[in-house]
Design a protein around this nucleic acid. Structure first.
Length: 417
RNA sequence: CGGAGUGUGGUGUAACGGCUAACAUUCUCGCUUUGGGAGCGAGCGACUCAGGGUUCGAAUCCCUGCACUCCGACCA
């Protein structure tokens, strides 16, 4: 991609209507733009990052047997009335709208009910189970107060997977697999070291649910973390008997502020019973399907990475989610430099390496400043100076190391990042 | 939803109730410059969030609304 043609550019100054670090940096870098409080536009750079995150999640969900689908965003009140979740007194963050004929509709904030309804048509027998489906879809939540940039928005992208099993044992087995898959997602997007499995309050059918909490001062949750055992307890269930049960000692725990990036639940038969989702077992009896739900905020993960990898000058994107792999920068407008830079750009592109090529006629300071803001992990500078050494300057942003790399080694090296 | 604060060119700021709303940046054109947001010159760009009120006169004071930010409450 030629930077001269990249839609939207960086900003010199922080937006005045944002305090959150993620929003400031993402807006300055040209990743997102604000539309309303809690509603953000994804610009090309931001969309690239979000797509990378989504793809990683997709791969991990597929690995544990998930199949992707896409449910409707517009919601029929009937299924929600069946479970008791249509009322504004019960769920206060509904966005509701109407058809021309005054029929009420909702905008989906989660999807247990419509999916359970859908499954009635697809699950008749124990032979039809288990089923694991997920979607990566825009959710709407009418938050009374949006805050913290993209960490808590009114419209956001979320991955939600739902499991359907014959019994509790089947659910338990899959639930453990989901934990592992989530772990891999956070490792791959680069926040594994700061993200911990956390015990949180359960629903009607299990004692606990599990959250994945990323330690970060921008978070809204308080957790008590044991770094040795790599588990944490959410403040909401932090009680002596819980500590005892989990074999944790108060002394080994540190109190931390964290961002909830994922949450998995054992639902049991709650929604299956409400919607009448049953199957016939081997004994010929009709019984309820056992469900689980597994949420992961894609937009929130995007913001969390920005919070954790952000600095005063920009965001140092982890390799796997960076908008591009390499930022190639030519300095000056010397024809030899321009020609060589173009050649390298074309060679890298031909190898399917994602390169952002700063081909603009601009000062070095501006180019470096922009490169810091955009934060692509590998910055290659080509100038009269580097060409005098028959090389390019290769800066590894994540490691913080700069070195000269010979021109004829650049391609080989880039392929092996 | 309770409380506090803020709304001025694209962006960031300034302006005692009183001149044609100022400065920086961005942007456009020309020249110069080219390793950390460089220089000179010339331009474009705002009826100061909306509506009402006070006043000879309102960006400025008052009221209402809206928007945004923060604190709290809320948060499968």
């Amino acid at each position: 991609m030629l930077q001269s043609q990249l839609f939207t550019k960086t900003r010199r100054e922080d937006p005045k209507d944002e305090v959150a670090k993620n929003a400031k940096l993402l807006i300055r870098g040209g990743f997102i733009a604000k539309s309303l409080a809690g509603v953000y536009v994804l610009l090309p750079l931001g969309l690239r990052v979000l797509d990378k995150i989504s793809q990683i999640i997709r791969e991990e969900m597929n690995k544990i047997g998930g199949q992707e689908l896409r449910l409707a965003t517009l919601q029929d009140p009937a299924v929600w009335q069946a479970s008791g979740r249509w009322s504004d007194e019960v769920v206060d963050n509904w966005f509701k709208t109407k058809l021309k004929n005054d029929t009420e509709l909702g905008l989906g904030f989660t999807h247990e009910e419509p999916l359970a309804k859908l499954m009635i048509d697809h699950i008749q027998s124990y032979r039809d189970l288990p089923v694991y489906v997920y979607q990566i879809q825009t959710k709407f939540r009418n938050e009374v107060r949006a805050k913290s940039g993209i960490l808590r928005g009114r419209e956001f992208l979320m991955k939600d997977l739902y499991s359907f099993n014959v019994d509790q044992a089947g659910l338990d087995t899959f639930y453990e697999k989901a934990k592992v898959a989530y772990r891999r997602v956070f490792d791959r997007v680069g926040i594994g070291a700061q993200t911990f499995l956390t015990f949180a309050s359960g629903g009607t059918f299990s004692k606990y649910s599990h959250e994945f909490q990323a330690i970060c001062s921008a978070g809204e949750d308080i957790i008590y973390l044991s770094r040795d055992k790599e588990i944490a307890i959410n403040d909401e269930v932090y009680r002596p008997e819980v500590l005892a049960e989990l074999g944790l000692d108060e002394k080994e725990l540190s109190k931390e502020t964290a961002i909830e990036v994922g949450n998995i639940f054992k639902l049991g038969t709650k929604y299956a019973e409400a919607l009448g989702l049953t199957y016939v077992n081997e004994a010929g009896e009709r019984v309820s399907v056992v469900m689980g739900s597994y949420g992961l905020g894609v937009t929130r993960l995007f913001g969390t990475i920005a919070e954790l990898c952000g600095t005063d000058t920009g965001i140092n994107w982890p390799d796997n989610v960076a908008p591009f792999a390499i930022h190639l920068i030519m300095l000056g407008n010397d024809e030899v430099v321009t020609t060589k830079a173009k050649t390298i750009y074309e060679e890298l592109s031909a190898k399917n390496i994602e390169v952002l090529f700063d081909d603009r006629v601009a000062g070095a300071g501006e180019k470096f400043g922009d490169a810091d803001l955009i934060g692509i992990p590998h910055r290659l500078v080509i100038s009269v100076k580097t060409l005098a050494n028959n090389s390019v300057e290769w800066f590894n942003r994540g490691v913080g190391k700069t070195e000269l790399v010979a021109l004829d080694e650049v391609l080989n090296r880039a392929v092996n990042i």
